[in-house]
Structure formats: structure tokens, C-alpha cells
Design a protein around this nucleic acid. Structure first.
Lengths: 132, 132
DNA sequence: TATAGGGATTCCAGCTACTGGAAGGTCAAG
DNA sequence: CTTGACCTTCCAGTAGCTGGAATCCCTATA
């Protein structure tokens, strides 16, 4: 299979697939013409990567998950740890963004938003008023 | 004021302040020794930037906010628009992360997390089961 | 057979917003 | 005069791609 077909099958752009090869996530063979020749297993791996990335796992997480996936003797706890850590990061990111949102909502609410020049948002940013 | 003092006063690392000068967010004068010589206004600007960045505004947002801040005739609506757009981005990011979190929670919950090799998380990633 | 197109290849650069580090200049204290 | 803290510039790297240029390969049609 050529890269174009694999791109379609895995849902990843060809550019991304080349990049994944660069960083050693997949190692397709090469045909005589120099084209990458992907096996079914490669396509599978790329689909796996696509799904894992869409779940927000980092490339390094994906690398670990892939090697666990390929290790038929791994403990499911290892996988769960990676996922749990990821979940924790997501949870704190959500909390952080929610706090930000509350602050912004307050500021926006206080700003009359017309063509007068005085603006509580800028006042807050400049430190002349304490918010948050 | 030298960069070290400004760093302390504004809460930004010296490296970051130099970077902000590079990209034209501040333009401190220079002393005879080549050191940056920051005015009170510069310190003010940097504190403004620090606060805006901590609220998650992008550098380009900050650039706009700063120029609005310096324009005594600007309409508060302009500021409010930037802040509202930012709020919208934050809101959708939160929703996205929450959806991710739900999926991950489900997967983690289904994984027994012991030293047996079978793992629903990897099964999902490999596409052998439909989740989400 | 020439050519046109659609793919494939490599490599280089750029995105965001810094951050680390090296090599060196400056200043104040002792 | 030396020491150490501070400052300078410049280069490279972070994450994860993405765009683009120059070139090559394959297939089909005139």
C-alpha cells in the first residue's frame, strides 16, 4: 500500500505518517521505486495512533502504548497507569480552564461593550482593579 | 531599571521579557553599557502582558489589547470582542476536554488494571471495540 | 512516443511561546 | 585585582505537525 491509501485508511494525513516514520513510530518497508510500502500491520498501527492521538495522548504516551500493545505479556495495569495519568492531566486542565472562564465571564459581564472608551477588562489587565 | 528588577516587578522571567522585546511588544531604551533601561511605563506594560497571558490570551491577542489600552479613544466593544472570542475558545476547549474525559473514564473503569495482559483500553485503541 | 496528471520523494522552514545554554561584556564589593 | 552576580547576543530545542519547493515515478491518453 502506498502512503495515500494508508492516509485514507488510517485517517491521518500523509505528512503526518511521514513524520511518524521520522520519529520511529512506524517503519514501513520501501519498494524498488523508493515509495514506502505499508503492510496491513502498519496500517493497523497508524489507526491505533490516530485514535490514541485523538484521545489526547502525547506522542510519547503513544510510543509507550504501542509497545505495550505489541507486548502480549504486558500487565493491563501499565496501560491503565498511562491512561490514568492522562486523565489526571485532563482533569486539572479542565479545572484551570473553568477558573479562567469564570474570570473572563465576570470581566466581560462588567464591560458595557459600547463605543465609550472606558473598559473594565483593560482596567483589570492593567492591574488597577483586583479581580479573580 | 535593569531587566532583573523588571522581571521581579512584572512576574515575568528575564528571558521572556527579552523575547517580548524581540517580537516588538515592548521597546525599552538602552543604556551606554548596552543594558536595557526600562521605564515605569515599560514595567506597567509587562505587568499587563503578564496578567493577560495568565488569562490565556494569545500573544497576538495581547498585542491587540495593548494597542487598545494605549488608544484612549478606543471603544470598549473592541476589547470586549477580543475577550468574548477568547471566552468562546475556552468554552469549546472545555467541552472537548470533558468529552475526552468521559471516554477515558469509561475505558479506565473497564480496565481491571492488574497484571493480566488483556486490556480494554488497548482493545479500544486498536479499534476492535467501538467506544465513544 | 511524448506528454500531462497525479502521486510519491526529500529537505527546509515555520507555527506557539518560550526556555536552556554557551561565550562573553559589565559592574560593585572586598 | 579578583570574584561573583548580572547583563548581552546568538543558537538550538521544545510538540506535533504543516506548507512548500524541487524532483522523481507511474499511468493513461493523443
Amino acid at each position: 500500500m502506498n502512503i495515500g491509501d494508508v492516509a485514507e485508511a488510517s485517517g491521518l494525513p500523509a505528512k503526518t505518517i511521514r513524520y511518524y516514520e521520522d520519529i520511529g513510530l512506524v517503519r514501513p518497508k520501501r519498494g524498488q521505486n523508493g515509495y514506502r510500502a505499508f503492510s496491513e500491520a502498519d496500517v493497523y498501527k497508524l489507526a491505533f495512533l490516530s485514535r490514541a492521538r485523538s484521545l489526547g495522548f502525547s506522542i510519547e504516551d503513544c510510543r509507550s502504548l504501542m509497545s505495550l500493545y505489541e507486548d502480549r505479556d504486558r500487565a493491563s495495569a501499565d496501560v491503565r497507569n498511562i491512561a490514568s495519568d492522562h486523565l489526571d492531566r485532563i482533569t486539572s486542565k479542565i479545572a484551570e480552564l473553568q477558573s479562567l472562564r469564570r474570570t473572563l465571564e465576570t470581566l466581560i459581564h462588567r464591560c458595557h461593550g459600547d463605543d465609550r472608551p472606558d473598559c473594565p477588562i483593560l482596567d483589570d489587565l492593567s492591574g488597577s482593579e483586583a479581580t479573580q
